[in-house]
């Protein structure tokens, strides 16, 4: 296998993985956290070289092709019916998606 140049040590701690899992709303078990931390460290090590590759004056590419100004006319397109919209809902009531109690900030 070709080696990835410039590999350096990157450690990612179990606590850090737990925090990331929290941000990503995944309830990882202790065993999963134990397994994931070293795996992620290895992956990150193999890609860490990237931080030294590009000079400051290199512009980032977010889109492969340089398109701009792709707009839609402000004209109504037929919607889904409520039945279609709710067809996959794990629970529904009063033609709405029923979701467990929401913690926190009212909009």
């Amino acid at each position: 296998m070709p080696d990835i140049p410039g590999a350096s040590r990157v450690e990612i701690s179990r606590d850090e993985v737990a925090h990331l899992a929290d941000l990503a709303r995944i309830d990882l078990s202790d065993a999963e956290l134990d397994a994931l931390a070293p795996q992620l460290s290895v992956i990150l090590e193999s890609i860490a070289s990237i931080s030294e590759v590009a000079a400051d004056d290199i512009p980032p590419t977010s889109h492969a092709l340089p398109l701009t100004n792709v707009f839609r006319e402000d004209v109504v397109v037929p919607c889904l019916t409520a039945e279609q919209a709710l067809s996959g809902a794990p629970a529904k009531e009063q033609q709405r998606f029923a979701v467990p109690r929401i913690l926190g900030d009212e909009q």
């Binding site: 402000d74 004209v75 397109v77 919607c79 889904l80 409520a82 033609q95 709405r96 998606f97």
Partner: peptide
């Protein structure tokens, strides 16, 4: 606007619930 920011669903206020949606805004 007559339609939503990123899809062609209408924006009229007060419609029956979930009648103004499409794959994009859902």
């Amino acid at each position: 606007t007559v339609t939503k920011m990123f899809c062609g669903c209408p924006t009229e206020f007060g419609a029956e619930p979930n009648t103004q949606t499409c794959p994009t805004c859902l």
